[in-house]
Write a protein that binds this DNA or RNA. Sequence first.
DNA 1: TTTAACTGACACTATTGTAGTATCAGTTAA
DNA 2: TTAACTGATACTACAATAGTGTCAGTTAAA
Lengths: 133, 133
Amino acid sequence: MKLINKNVDYAARALLVMSKTGGVFISARDIAAAQKIPYHFLRRVLQPLIKNGIVASVEGTKGGFKLLVDPAKLSILKLISIYNGKFQLSECMFRGKPCSNRRTCVLRKEVVKIENDFAERLGKLTISKLLQK
Amino acid sequence: MKLINKNVDYAARALLVMSKTGGVFISARDIAAAQKIPYHFLRRVLQPLIKNGIVASVEGTKGGFKLLVDPAKLSILKLISIYNGKFQLSECMFRGKPCSNRRTCVLRKEVVKIENDFAERLGKLTISKLLQK
DNA sequence: TTTAACTGACACTATTGTAGTATCAGTTAA
DNA sequence: TTAACTGATACTACAATAGTGTCAGTTAAA
Ligand code: FES
Ligand code: FES
């Protein structure tokens, strides 16, 4: 079971770099060098962050990326949801097979509760927490 | 993000069937039919359960499988660990890259805590809970 | 003693997900 | 005009997941 894949990993590290450079635009090449991330991979990783309004970009020479949001409000959960879709560990454990009624299923209720708690806590793991040291 | 794969899913359903038949041996063919699980797949899924002392099997005609342990003590977590190895969502989130010291890393401490709580709760999701209705 | 129903152990295919690389078009500062 | 950049997308390689098939050995029963 892997929760953090390279997409999320590299995105978090790129955002970490950006949160340090503040409002200045930094190029993908420089981010890649700073974190030893494969350049082309990083460029692909950055696109969804733009689409989600997390970073801004400018093209051309001296172009690059900068953070648009507060790192204290940017969670690992958010990144996971961007790259891996909605975070949910199991839509329904047995897809209606042994469970006659989804609404009354004991197991399902419990799983949903655990999932929610888990997601809530992952939502509190923010980029800014990585800087606290 | 998927936590429950077919191995765990089918295993749990097979164990559910066995927990109903009690001490009587039931064949893989009958389990597969009862739960609409692909027969050959199920046969492969059952082997690790034997290795882990969860079920017993007898060969030959009228052979089959039966449960060896208390369904109330058989958790989803146990099944996950059997098929997917030790349950851990992220060994280390950034593998020493932005984190200067693993021992003091705030993020890592928090992730470990969340993981532990999560595993503990998954450990309470037992096969017998599926029967409670 | 032969047969049919079974498990044990693998080998095999197909599909999908993950990681990484490459290319080309368009943009902008110098 | 050129060099450094982004946007978009296509491509390869590898691993994980899901499912199928086969053959050897075991056992109850005809
Ligand atoms: S696990 Fe899905 S309804 Fe019970
Ligand atoms: S996340 Fe691994 S040491 Fe910080």
